[in-house]
Design a protein around this nucleic acid. Structure first.
Lengths: 207, 207
DNA sequence: TTGCATACCAGACATTTGTCTGGTGTACTT
DNA sequence: AAGTACACCAGACAAATGTCTGGTATGCAA
């Protein structure tokens, strides 16, 4: 027989392996755990898994293939998913923007498939605490309300501004007195979505 | 026989169901798909799934239980996970702060287990673009470098400030001239971590 | 009309996967 | 020494799950 390990040491390693598999959506079978640890008997793997269930570290759907799982997730909201961070949005609009995906960013939102991220380029919104290189998370929608911060496509360039709705016209206002409002011709402006969140990565010494 | 649906309509609904299951880490069996859609034959479900594989919307491990999956994740980084958002951090430090978990927020980081979120309460850091009700994401560590924005425990209250290291003393500087630097006695201040990201949820009309 | 594509059903079989029973070996405690 | 807890092995069986073959029905195009 193989030499045995200290009580609990193998189980800890198995827990880590199983947790990692579960976190990437690949629940393992008992035989996969067996193979991963080089056991010669399925029952060895099974007993470790059963002990982890007994300790409350795993849960299990009895009799179901790949039935071990993690206990209830800490949050009652939707699971975290990734949305695209777009490098640029130009004339083609969102349908063609997919080619310019710079990265993906994590959100918990039921509306995730309607969200995209956009990197802020200028200083026109610093009065609203939105700075260059910040990322805005945008809910895709063709309209928004007066006073909301939106991403609008003007001509062939996307911009982040505060929406002001006048009688038969919209204006795109900066939140920085060094910039002028944009008053686009009607057919040359469309709203891509509403800004719902701002994120900034802080590097050492920055600001 | 049951009435049939338009070409592609059922498959679309099946794709959505399977994707949702996969995203929460619960890959379905063919029979679970069959049951979910009220088919009387397993083969019906199987054919839809096989077509989705053929279209590239799903991938599959042949012969394996619960073997359908999503194509390679869009990002090559770590999967999104949740970290705790702490409502308060007081005298007990992080070990006791778990009782004050206000929510969970999504991150993609290999260091997720060292991260926590903290809600910003005052206006002392507005010069750095950090406003009340913003959330700072903090990397737990007992030290930081000069000039970095940190969360420090002073007495029994946590605060977000810029760290200034003098000879044998640390100072906690605001980024707002209406506030004075904090120069805490040596045994009454500890660094909980370094701020690595700021997030702000934007509500309608806010700011 | 036939052929094709798609959506659905029915039944059987093969393989994977979970589960159980019986076992050895080591270390520690009573 | 016996008993307990834990770690490991071996083999068999039951159930879940994947796969295949044969089929009906509808709509559309040639």
């Amino acid at each position: 027989m193989s030499p045995k390990t200290k009580p609990g040491a193998t189980r800890e390693r198995i827990y880590r392996y199983v947790r990692k598999q579960l976190e990437v959506g690949l629940p393992p079978t008992t035989r996969e755990v067996q193979a991963a640890f080089g056991f010669r008997a399925v029952q060895t793997a099974r007993e470790h898994l059963e002990r982890l269930v007994h300790e409350g570290l795993l849960v299990k759907r009895p009799g179901k293939a790949r039935g071990y799982g993690l206990p209830s997730r800490p949050s009652s909201g939707p699971p975290p998913t990734l949305i695209p961070l777009l490098g640029r949005v130009q004339a083609g609009g969102l349908n063609e923007a997919i080619e310019h995906v710079e990265d993906y960013i994590p959100v918990t939102s039921r509306a995730a498939k309607h969200l995209f991220g956009l990197r802020v380029r200028g200083e026109s919104m610093t009065g609203a605490g939105i700075f260059p290189d910040d990322i805005v998370i945008v809910h895709s929608q063709p309209t928004a309300e007066n006073g909301q911060i939106v991403v609008a496509l003007v001509g062939d360039e996307a911009t982040v501004k505060t929406l002001r709705i006048r009688r038969k016209r919209i204006e795109l206002h900066p939140e920085n007195s060094a910039f002028e409002p944009i008053i686009p011709p009607p057919n040359e402006c469309s709203i891509l979505g509403k800004v719902i969140e701002v994120r900034r990565v802080i590097s050492a010494g920055k600001r």
